[in-house]
């Protein structure tokens, strides 16, 4: 995967398959501390304790449950090839949490990529059934998008409607312009 956002999209797909209806995504960019952190947390079915140990081994896959496969191993590899770290925590019946940490300035760190398209694609297809809380921090500035807040205003209209998706896209664009302040 060429972009970290593609890994994010992939892990979110795991959450969807695990029956999650709430996904939390946090991206913290701290270039001065040479740190980029990505947190993903869902309330899906979780992973068995004995499977969790081997979950990032590409040759361990339980395709019948469709919960593991190459996705997590590729994400882990993306972190480790530039000296980063990958953590996973999961509890059966409660959900799964993934935390990946990268050295921000490492030459082998994949670029974050097109996060707006990633978020928008996910909501346009799954927004009615899965909620997303997305927090992005750059240095000391941050914003938070919560699809549940948007839905409150929509009064039954689908969040997947073209017009709403386009509004969210502009909202994210403005929010990024604000936190990057012309720096990125």
């Amino acid at each position: 995967m060429r972009e970290l956002t593609l890994h994010i999209l992939d892990i979110i797909e795991n959450s969807r398959e695990a029956g999650a209806d709430l996904i939390k995504l946090k991206i913290f960019e701290q270039p001065e501390q040479d740190s980029l952190k990505i947190f993903l947390k869902d309330n899906g079915s979780g992973i068995d304790e004995d499977k969790l140990e081997d979950i990032t081994n590409p040759f361990v896959t339980t395709r019948t449950t469709r919960e593991v496969g190459l996705g997590l191993s590729l994400f882990k590899q993306a972190a480790e090839r530039c000296g980063g770290n990958f953590y996973i925590k999961s509890e059966k019946g409660k959900g799964t949490e993934v935390m990946v940490e990268f050295p921000y300035n490492h030459i082998d760190r994949a670029p974050l990529g097109d996060i707006i398209t990633t978020i928008i694609s996910f909501i346009a297809v799954n927004g009615d059934s899965i909620d997303l809380i997305y927090r992005h921090k750059f240095k000391n500035r941050e914003f938070c998008f919560d699809s549940r807040e948007v839905k409150k205003e929509l009064d039954g209209i689908s969040i997947q409607s073209k017009e709403i998706i386009s509004w969210i896209k502009n909202y994210l664009k403005d929010s990024f312009a604000e936190i990057y302040g012309g720096e990125n």
Binding site: L6, L9, E13, G69, T117, A124, K162
Partner: peptide, 28 residues
């Protein structure tokens, strides 16, 4: 229906999905 497994995403499914959404929007 767009295939969005690891294989799909690695092969470019996000761009495919984006193109679909753009076409849907453009042609209403």
């Amino acid at each position: 229906i767009v295939g969005m497994g690891t294989c799909g995403i690695a092969a470019g499914a996000r761009d495919i999905l984006k193109a679909i959404l753009e076409e849907v929007d453009r042609r209403n």
